[in-house]
Structures are given as structure tokens and as C-alpha cells.
């Protein structure tokens, strides 16, 4: 048998770069974004929303007129080069009023969603994680709140608190968090039985840490989708309350009271109903489109 000499061995040439990561790894959110980008309707909604947000911020600055200044000689004008969207019955510039209204409506929607997020997610997680009696008690409480018709309570609250942006947000937030809490709880009940929670617990992680670091990040997908439906609902509530005369009071503008005023004079000055309607419907429409798209993109069950 031929002996094996040392010279027979040679270091192999490194031919390929097999270990290198060719493509960036896709995490959950990057993956969802990739899928969302392919959804034309959802992207359309997102683009419209970005434009509306920008206009709500810079819109009032583009015209020399303030939303509250009255021009009593120039009331109810049709759109012209001076007043781009016409004026209302006190001669206030509609362009400025509409974008101020959009700003306030979006503000109400976003703050209500933020409150909803904090209260709902916390309540849902605590209820699901601790389970047993805590869960049973917290669920009974939710069931009761859930069956209270929120618009009726909102009306009563508005009467007590007085009309204004804060009251509207509060009136919505008091009953609005329930859906979010139910949703989060449902997801968490499944999640908390999974191995990574057991692993975290056996490593000695405290309950709060498990909830905050392990459970909540895993339900964020559902939460984000829900938020896109909460914002339009809150905006709708504002418009509804303003319509029955309990919402934001003039001279401050909100889409709700612009719609209400516009509906009253529609026969003679259709432009005063038309423009707020278009903006209001666009906001609701884009949030709904975006929400539908996000749900398809974030929900693993919908993957093909």
C-alpha cells in the first residue's frame, strides 16, 4: 500500500462565496411591505392619505385668508381665483376652513386611535396572559361595555363635558377600546401557549417582560390593521356628533360641522357641501383601502 505523503495534500481553493448573504433577509415588516406595495388599491389609499395629511398641514398657509376671518360683504361666493373653494355664510374662506377641518378630524382620529391602542392592547394582554379569574372578570366587564351603544353614551358625555375636541376624543375612547382589547386577547391566548413564552419563563423572565417584549410584538400586525379601521370610525363619530349639533363649534372648523352647514344650504350653494363631502369620503375610503391591503399583507393565513 502506497504511503500517503504530506505533499499529496493541498489546501482547497475557495471558489465561491457560499457563506455570503446574497439578498437582505426579510423580516416580518419588510415582507409585509413588499406585499403591500403590489396591492394597487392599498397603495392608492396610502398615497391619497399622505397627500391629505400634507395638505392638512400646509393647506391653510397657501391662502392669505384665515379660517375664522369673516368677510361679511363676500358671503356664500362660488369658487373663484380669490377664494379657491368659495366662502361660507360669514364670508369665511372655504379652502382654509376645509383644511383646518381636515386637520382637526385627522387629529381626533389619530389621538383616539392612540388611546385605543394603549388601553386596548394593555387590557387585552393582561386579560389573556394572566387568564383564570382575572380573565373571567375582565371579560365580563368587556361584555358589558361592548353592549352599551357607544354613540348614545358619546351623546350623553358630550352634553356633560361640553362640545369640543377633547370631549369627542374622550367620548370615543371610553367605549372604543373594547374591540381592540378583544382582538388582542384572542391572539394572545394562542401565543402564550407557544414554546418561546415557555422558554422566556424558564429563563426567569418576569410577566411584564414577557408581555412587553415577547407577546406584544407578535400581535402588532393585527393591531396595526385594527388601527386603520379605528381612525375612520373616530372621524365618523366626530362628524356624526357635529351633525346633530354636539360636535366642534364654529368658528373652529371640522369636517363634521362643515358637512352639517353644507347640508343645510345645499340647495342654494352646492359647493359648500360638495368639497367637505369629497375630502371626508376620501379620508374614509383611503383608510379602508389601506386597512384591507394591510390585512392581506400582514395576515399569514392570507398568504398564497
Amino acid at each position: 500500500m502506497e504511503s500517503i505523503s504530506k505533499e499529496m495534500f493541498q489546501p482547497a481553493q475557495k471558489t465561491t462565496n457560499a457563506e455570503a448573504i446574497v439578498r437582505p433577509s426579510l423580516n416580518y415588516w419588510a415582507d409585509a411591505w413588499r406585499r403591500l406595495r403590489k396591492n394597487k388599491l392599498a397603495m392608492g389609499g396610502l398615497i391619497i392619505l399622505v397627500i391629505l395629511f400634507l395638505l392638512a398641514i400646509i393647506g391653510p398657509m397657501l391662502t392669505p385668508f384665515s379660517y375664522a376671518t369673516q368677510h361679511l360683504k363676500e358671503t356664500n361666493l362660488a369658487p373663484s381665483s380669490k377664494y379657491w373653494l368659495g366662502t361660507d355664510d360669514f364670508g369665511r374662506d372655504m379652502w382654509a376652513r376645509i383644511w383646518w377641518g381636515t386637520r382637526i378630524s385627522l387629529f381626533i382620529g389619530l389621538v383616539a386611535a392612540a388611546l385605543d391602542l394603549v388601553v386596548g392592547v394593555l387590557y387585552g394582554s393582561i386579560s389573556a396572559y394572566f387568564g383564570g379569574k382575572v380573565d373571567a372578570f375582565m371579560q365580563r366587564f368587556i361584555e358589558i361595555i361592548y353592549s352599551i351603544p357607544y354613540l348614545l353614551i358619546a351623546i350623553l358625555l358630550m352634553m356633560v363635558l361640553g362640545s369640543g375636541v377633547t370631549s369627542i376624543i374622550l367620548a370615543y375612547a371610553i367605549t372604543g377600546w373594547v374591540t381592540m382589547a378583544r382582538l388582542v386577547r384572542g391572539q394572545m391566548l394562542v401565543l402564550k401557549e407557544q414554546e418561546f413564552v415557555l422558554a422566556a419563563r424558564s429563563l426567569g423572565a418576569k410577566s411584564w417582560r414577557i408581555i412587553a417584549k415577547h407577546l406584544i410584538p407578535n400581535v402588532l400586525g393585527v393591531v396595526v390593521v385594527q388601527i386603520t379601521f379605528v381612525v375612520p370610525t373616530a372621524i365618523f363619530v366626530e362628524a356624526f356628533l357635529s351633525f346633530i349639533g354636539l360636535g366642534v363649534k364654529p368658528p373652529l372648523a371640522s369636517l363634521g360641522n362643515l358637512l352639517n352647514d353644507g347640508a343645510g344650504v345645499m340647495r342654494y350653494h352646492p359647493h359648500r357641501l360638495l368639497f367637505p363631502t369629497v375630502i371626508f369620503s376620501l379620508i374614509l375610503l383611503s383608510f379602508n383601502l389601506l386597512g384591507d391591503g394591510l390585512r392581506d399583507a400582514l395576515d399569514p393565513k392570507m398568504r398564497k
Binding site: F236, L259, A263, M266, R267, L273, L284, L285, N288, L289
Partner: peptide, 22 residues
């Protein structure tokens, strides 16, 4: 369905009342 969701009854109402009624 989308129109129904994004245009609330308090906008559709006046429009119907005006165009079809008046």
C-alpha cells in the same frame, strides 16, 4: 360596498333629498 362605507348616511341623505326630491 366601498362607497357605502365611505359616504355616511348624513351625506347621502341630503343628496338624495335634493337631487331626487327637489
Amino acid at each position: 360596498a366601498l362607497i357605502g362605507i365611505s359616504i355616511p348616511s348624513f351625506v347621502i341623505g341630503p343628496l338624495l333629498s335634493y337631487y331626487i326630491g327637489v
